[in-house]
């Protein structure tokens, strides 16, 4: 199996603030890999180093077998990667086709422009001015610009931030389609459901460190964790009268944790049926990705809201 990305002991500081503090992860070819973390955790800094946009302080990085810090091979690398930024970077007075044709001209082996227009679902808008497109359509054009060079690896920095739910779903479909074609995707996102829907593996960043790394479905052992049973305490019943031991009681909401939820439910429901006690608000839940994420990043705040600029001109 070949690697698309290899990051080892990566470090980057802005002044005294460590934006990345010993970050390591690997991404296989064809994989959709997500970086998850609060603002300032180091997601964008990581992506910018991998794209060769900013320089790292220490550690080693390989992108499609090339060191993005090596200026000599940077152009060859950029022929093979696609980039979608957080910002909607589209020119408003061009038409959809004009923008895509312009950017296709940058690459040695671009995709067919009509094919890209079709893939991003803008066939009916191909001759419309970009400024006439809705936010969701502009984002899809933006992703079209990311893939028009026929990249082997696509960087998606928060691709659906600011989109409405319907536009988010069509963007997901597009990303799934690209992944199915074999494009490797490195994405960042704030949305847990987005990462659950798209990414096979995820790294949670917190304070510039990897707080957890693993398959999305099993991150933090959540597939094996205890289930939480919730219900409303029936009136006239004391918590100590319940057939199962509460983990905690908040107001009249009872929470029971159990690694054998079937047996616990059975005890509860048969007790209620036999005693004619009405149990309402019953639910069973396992830890969500969000629970794991919040536990891992507890106490994090956006500490590097404004990262000092390290992107000034360097003479080529």
């Amino acid at each position: 199996m070949t690697l698309a990305l290899r990051v080892e002991h990566l470090r980057k500081s802005y002044g005294a603030v460590a934006a990345l503090d010993d970050v390591s992860f690997e991404v296989e070819r064809g994989e959709v890999f997500a970086l998850l973390g609060p603002n300032g955790a180091g997601k964008t800094t990581s992506i910018e180093i991998l794209e060769g946009f900013i320089a790292r302080d220490a550690g080693s990085v390989e992108v499609l077998g090339i060191d993005p810090g090596d200026r000599q091979h940077l152009r060859g690398l950029r022929d093979r990667i696609g980039v979608v930024l957080q910002e909607l970077a589209v020119e408003s007075f061009f038409t959809v086709r004009q923008v895509l044709e312009r950017n296709a001209g940058f690459y040695p082996h671009p995709r067919d422009v009509e094919e890209v227009i079709d893939m991003v679902g803008l066939s009916e808008k191909s001759d419309a001015k970009v400024k006439r497109l809705s936010g969701g359509q502009q984002r899809r054009l933006d992703i079209g610009l990311g893939i028009v060079g026929n990249p082997e690896l696509l960087f998606l920095d928060e691709p659906t931030t600011g989109l409405d739910p319907a536009a988010r779903r069509t963007t997901w479909d597009l990303i799934r389609h690209l992944a199915a074609e074999g494009t490797t995707v490195l994405m960042s996102s704030h949305y847990m459901n987005e990462i659950e829907a798209l990414a096979q593996r995820v790294a949670v960043l917190s304070h510039g460190r990897v707080a957890a790394l693993g398959a999305t479905a099993t991150l933090g052992g959540r597939d094996r964790s205890e289930a939480t049973i919730r219900f409303t305490l029936p009136s006239g019943v004391a918590a100590s009268d319940l057939p199962i031991t509460p983990w905690r009681v908040e107001g009249d909401t009872v929470e029971v944790r159990s690694d054998d939820e079937l047996r616990a439910l059975h005890a509860l429901t048969s007790w209620a049926l036999e005693g004619h006690i009405a149990v309402t608000g019953l639910s069973v839940a396992r830890e969500t990705l969000e629970d794991i994420y919040l536990a891992l990043t507890r106490g994090d705040r956006a500490e590097i809201d404004e990262e000092p600029d390290d992107t000034k001109a360097r003479t080529p």
């Binding site: 794209e51 060769g52 946009f53 152009r75 950029r78 022929d79 990667i81 980039v83 930024l85 957080q86 910002e87 909607l88 970077a89 589209v90 020119e91 950017n103 940058f106 690459y107 040695p108 610009l145 060079g149 992107t311 080529p316």
Partner: peptide, 16 residues
Amino acid sequence: ETGLLKRLRLSPVPTW
């Protein structure tokens, strides 16, 4: 400010 320069910088087009 709209990110167009950054996107160009990340494309294979040389600065010159």
